[in-house]
Nucleic acid binder design. Structure first.
Lengths: 330, 330
DNA sequence: TTGAAAGCGCTAACAT
DNA sequence: ATGTTAGCGCTTTCAA
């Protein structure tokens, strides 16, 4: 900020009027305060001439509200969160709010640091997809008293939550195979979060109910290991695989390809979470799609509602249904 | 902000000292101002007790700098921009800057509105991937005098730019086919931006140089149309397709599938822009990969350099090379 | 119809 | 070694 920008005062001085008058006019309250049309024109013209831009900070400082919502995401390069982010921002924008997005990288340290930054910026509320350990962030939240909505990953009992029922949705997957599986293997990612835990639980529950033999495997980062594990599972009689998220599926496809297994024939495959590429795979990959847009809209709207009425009861859970996308792999 | 948050003054009053003293201590300048260890402890304890959070706005207002960079993106749900965004944010964070991300949806109106919002927030600089029409945003930029870096899509001659040479890179693609193509069809997306134009130019230049027959097709949104167009191109003798971005390729794959054309055999295929799924397709899709992380790091670092030294010459162009990913489809 | 002045929370120059 | 005070740019009450 070398060449200091134009302030209200600059305009006032240039025109020989008071700051107040300028402020009124520029906030469209000119008529309300009976300021002469003539002077209003003059002020507006001068403002444009000096390319005046109001200082948002000074305004917020004075008014005590920023009309800004903080959005904490674990990984913005993940298309799932990308879409969530986009829709939340759009929805909030339509209600007159800006969104301040931060990326925690699923790292507790960064997350708390950045959340503090958010609070310093006097945001009016926070929508958050917490990194794995909620315990770390609850105290940070208590440093302030702004409304909070959790999405995708739940917080504690007192916070609003918008998400899906991972347990039940996974059970749906187990029952979705066209032929009853002889044996199911469910593959979880290396980093198991609360949602993945529920999904694992869902596989167990459903398989026990349906009396299907099953095994849960946590994939390592190494593709060679993955290939080996897949082979073992096939030897053990598994004919149906479930990928517990959309990242895992790529590893399975890769492994199955090198093992020369025909997906959809030798081996049935379903993914928890859809991906824009699944429809174009050979064969196309059947998947359970989360209602990302709805999740986003509900989160944003809950936030706005809470902001408008702070007597709303705490801990509201908004649980949305997933949609099974029938393709060729199951 | 119902229950007003703790301010410096609250702490000062509670302890019977002055605001200044508290400010010094809390900014780790206690020793510098010779404030007794004892009092320092006391102040820090009180601050924690009242869960004091400094008001960033008041601080910025006073100091005239926000240590915040605005980042304008056309579509954050596009993984390309998602990754760009993530790395820029990370790099800026490491240099002590926050990032304020906005999403223009490639819409000029929204873009200018949101950019004004950014300027109101007194950001120190702006990194921007402009929506198609640059003319609209240059005036907005002139309302302020902050440094600006364009990425992915160039601005005018006076602004710094970090990107790739779309023309030359596309020429690389034309020469990358393992066998000399009989005829090439290049497919562009429906919305042709400046980059796509250069890519089209690149196809022309290379094909003329190599004396290869070619045609450029702009795809409509309708998949049926696409299928028809593909069939026509094949009839016209095209044996090699180039997708001018990674979104287009899905349409081509889909069309080729319904037409029962074997990718990589009947028809060679290369994509401008890589995608995380390309390695798992059958056959896997060869692609020219943009150096997204490098793009991000250079943009962020150029910004930081400009902030540190505002005498830097204008209009620096940082052009980075792409990498051709050899897979099965070409 | 307009101006003066207080004050939002903070920092830093200046007193003491 | 610590307190006082002015002022960042803005809104808004009160006074004229």
């Amino acid at each position: 900020m070398k060449a200091k920008r134009t302030s209200l005062n600059d305009i006032a001085k240039a025109l020989g009027v008071s700051k107040a008058t300028v402020s009124f006019v520029l906030n469209d309250k000119g008529d309300q305060f009976n300021i002469s049309k003539n002077k209003q024109e003059l002020i507006k013209a001068k403002a444009k001439e000096l390319s005046y831009v109001p200082n948002f900070f000074a305004k917020s400082l004075r008014q005590g509200s920023t009309k800004t919502i903080g959005l904490v995401l674990p990984d913005i390069s993940n298309p799932f969160y990308g879409e969530l982010c986009k829709t939340i921002q759009q929805t909030l924008f339509n209600s007159g709010y800006s969104t301040y997005i931060i990326n925690s990288n699923d790292d507790k340290e960064q997350e708390t640091t950045l959340m503090r930054g958010l609070i310093q910026r006097c945001i009016d509320g926070m929508i958050i997809v917490p990194s794995n350990d909620i315990k770390e962030i609850i105290p940070v939240l208590h440093e302030t008293h702004i409304p909070v909505v959790f999405t995708d990953r739940p917080g504690d009992d007192l916070t609003d939550f918008v998400g899906i029922n991972n347990l039940e949705e996974t059970e749906k997957i187990v029952s979705a195979f066209k032929n009853k599986p002889k044996r199911i293997t469910a593959f979880s990612p290396n980093d198991i979060d609360a949602n993945t835990k529920m999904r694992i639980e869902g596989v167990k529950t459903a398989c026990e109910k349906l009396k299907i033999d099953f095994e849960i495997i946590t994939l390592s980062k190494d593709q060679k290991d993955t290939d080996k594990v897949i082979q073992e599972q096939i030897k053990k009689g598994s004919d149906s695989f479930i990928a517990l998220n959309s990242r895992v599926i790529f590893k399975l496809i890769s492994g199955l390809k090198t093992l020369n297994q025909a997906i959809g024939k030798d081996l049935k495959l379903i993914s928890f979470d859809d991906h824009e590429s699944f429809g174009y795979m050979t064969p196309s990959i059947s998947a359970l799609r989360q209602p990302i847009s709805d999740l986003a809209v509900h989160s944003a709207e809950r936030m706005v509602a809470r902001l408008a009425d702070d007597s709303l009861p705490f801990g509201k859970q908004i649980i949305l249904p997933c949609e099974f996308i029938e393709r060729e792999s199951h």
